[in-house]
């Protein structure tokens, strides 16, 4: 007879198999991506005084992926917005994969051990 779970084991399992709130995760990733990109570009704009010429071209290479992005305030906002959207998508994808992986693990386990009683 398997031992009944004690309270703390339940806590651990509940925590380990907790589900990510995809929307919240997606929004927060989007926000952090937006802010990070905005801060990085802002630093580049502020420091790009001619002596740090190397930085601009590398960062500007992102314009290939983010049309309209450049080292100006408008470009900064636009680029940060793009990156924020990418963050939204990545966050959602991450959350979805996390939940799916855990659900899949449980489902396989359930099928494998299968105590699904019909008798």
């Amino acid at each position: 007879m398997a031992k009944e779970l004690d309270l703390n084991e339940r806590i651990v399992l509940n925590a380990i198999f907790a589900k990510i709130d995809k929307t919240a995760f997606s929004l927060s990733t989007g926000m952090v991506f937006f802010l990070t990109m905005f801060v990085i570009t802002t630093i580049s704009i502020l420091k790009n005084d001619g002596e740090s010429v190397m930085v601009g071209p590398d960062l500007i290479a992102l314009a290939y992926y983010l049309p309209g992005y450049n080292l100006t305030w408008v470009g900064n906002f636009l680029g940060s917005l793009y990156v924020g959207i990418v963050g939204l998508a990545l966050g959602w994808f991450f959350g979805m994969l996390w939940n799916l992986t855990h659900y899949l693990y449980l489902a396989i386990l359930m099928n494998k051990i299968n105590l699904f009683k019909i008798d």
Partner: peptide, 16 residues
């Protein structure tokens, strides 16, 4: 109701 008896928590503990 039938699957409730699964006690997935216990199964997980066993599996883990």
């Amino acid at each position: 109701q039938r699957s409730k008896g699964l006690n997935i928590m216990t199964i997980l503990r066993e599996a883990i």
